[in-house]
Design a protein around this nucleic acid. Structure first.
Lengths: 337, 337
DNA sequence: ATGTGTTTTGCAAACGTTTGAATTTTTTTG
DNA sequence: CAAAAAAATTCAAACGTTTGCAAAACACAT
């Protein structure tokens, strides 16, 4: 593909390239007539400015890299949508990589992005104890870096997150008020996903607040975050008295729910189940799943706005922390008994 | 972020930039010693080649644009994964835009990508009767263009697709053999999604082959492709005798299934349900859903390989058509009565 | 006409690479 | 030891922009 350049226009109109450049950028020093003549010609000739040339000139790529832990839930899709919404409107390209909850893959993707010289990174770490030095190196190079969703925990950085602890508290409170006494927590590994620690904290606080005993036997940490991990967690609970489950994500909740059902237990009568994520998957399972629904699209938007702000403001050393609101959606899976 | 350049290395080592350039590119005309010295210095100084400079030089962006109709199913995620797998290994950036099944949005995204001067486009059209001229314009500009999944139908272009007709035939055959006599087809609009036309063709062929009467009253074209559209289709079937449903996608199938359940109909006893897409969503609903599962990751890979081939071979005017295999996965939703 | 001031345009360098051609250095040869 | 050949290095232009500064064009007063 051969594109029309500023030079072509200059040659055509017998003016200099600088004049064309200025005219197209509406520079005040160009005579109105000339400007209009040039802009008309540009349009007519199908000129489109070559972004790589200007990027070279300005020493940037107008690209931001996004690392997500997974890409196959509507949750991820919505966040990405939000990011792209802001970025495309600000003329930034977005490149996405999924780590698949694998820290090595995450690291590898970061490496690729660094080679692309992206102007900034929006990341959702899969494991808060991994790749820390790498992210620090990125920070030292003064490449803008924003985290979202997963709490970075052991690294100071701007971030866009949900108030896990509070939301978990309210959700568990809801279960308690619905008459549940033995509420299990199916969480992600505490050494991997810090949000899990926080939701557990909220969970425990709610129990305490309502005078329910905390039973470590019904607090499970899963291997991964797939449906099968939810199911596996249920197996571990097999011999424990349980009348409700609060799962770390919708995926875990759905995995758990289906296992419970196949064991012949009725939901919500025998066991209430609640998740966290607020994807529309909650509405396609039966019974429909109660969940905490962060404003995912907005989360993406905020993260994108933040990174763009940091890119345009290299001096700004802020570690701004944006809290995204989340709604608790009550559905059949936690109906009162 | 200030990066180390070839010039910095040149200055440091008191050689010319061309020597550095050639040394780093392993040019044979550079003395071994010099080359090694330069490469060592480059590494030590943390040099990373500036892709925007080389891209400018070569008149390309090393970016390929992907247009998907939706991004919130595991289907899309897997295809994208496949695309990225190939592209990142070939040093191409991938930028993705979702049209949300809206032709205007699709067009808008294409516009943005054109402004980014991507080297090629991989697209899944949301409506084969919309934006045709626009895609033709892209072809006229000789920008490599590959379609996947949705049949482009009224435009000649390289594509990576599934044999819809045949696969639909076999799936419906399976329903018939399981004893179903009144098999409904819930398809996407025939004027919008050509695959729907083809699957309908396969559906009809299977009926014919087994001597079942074709009943147009139980062939529904939906508005959109969401769960709600599946449910709405079931409502339209309300007064028809139906003991099986073949839905155009898993999403439609799940929407239909849930509506049937809420109407008190048992699946598969009263109505068998089958979908098409092969996402893992089929396994989280109950009963688990029979479906046709195209090799999604592979589909993405093939599409990416094709586009890269075309980029590297501008002369190649091929309209290669790659057929991706698909497996029929039999699950509880279509068990024999 | 001449000079002054303003407006408009052009020159040339720069961003970080690559690469054909020219130049320098080294090696080989008679 | 000089000349020729080969090898290694450098020069300079190019990719498509932007932009400080110089130059040209014009307006107006004298």
């Amino acid at each position: 593909m051969k594109y029309v350049t500023i030079k072509d226009i200059a040659r055509e109109l017998l003016v200099s390239v600088s004049t064309v450049s200025r005219a197209l950028n509406n520079d005040a020093s160009i005579r109105k007539e000339t400007r209009e003549k040039i802009q008309a010609a540009a349009k007519q000739m199908g000129y489109v400015p070559n972004p790589v040339a200007t990027n070279l000139k300005y020493g940037r790529t107008k690209t931001i890299g996004v690392i997500v832990p997974e890409m196959s839930t509507p949750y991820a899709a919505l966040v990405i949508d939000g990011i792209q919404d802001i970025c495309y409107h600000n003329n930034y390209k977005v490149i996405i990589a999924s780590s698949g909850e694998d820290a090595d893959k995450e690291r590898e993707s970061l490496d690729i992005m660094m080679q692309f010289m992206i102007d900034g990174i929006i990341a959702c770490r899969c494991d808060y104890n991994k790749n820390t030095e790498f992210y620090q190196k990125i920070q030292e190079q003064h490449i803008p870096l924003v985290f979202y969703d997963r709490i970075p925990h052991n690294i100071e950085a701007p971030q866009v997150v949900v108030d896990d602890e509070t939301k978990a508290f309210f959700l568990v409170e809801h279960l308690i008020r619905a008459g549940r006494k033995n509420i299990a927590f199916i969480g992600a590994n505490f050494d991997t996903v810090y949000n899990s620690v926080l939701r557990h904290k909220g969970y425990r606080a709610a129990l305490e607040r309502y005078g329910l005993e905390y039973n470590p036997n019904i607090v499970i940490q899963t291997e991964g975050l797939n449906y099968s991990d939810g199911a596996a967690a249920v197996d571990k609970l097999r011999h424990e008295k349980t009348d409700a489950i609060f799962a770390f994500t919708d995926t875990l909740a759905i995995g758990a729910m289906n296992r419970l059902k196949s064991m012949g237990r009725n939901i919500p009568r025998d066991v209430a189940v609640a998740g966290f994520s607020g994807t529309n998957l909650c509405t396609i399972v039966s019974p429909q799943l109660t969940t905490v629904e962060p404003r995912q699209f907005e989360m993406g938007q905020r993260a994108a706005e933040l990174i763009i702000k940091l890119i345009n403001n290299p001096s700004l050393q802020s570690n701004e922390k944006v809290i995204i609101d989340a709604d608790i959606i009550y559905r059949d899976s936690t109906e009162e008994t």
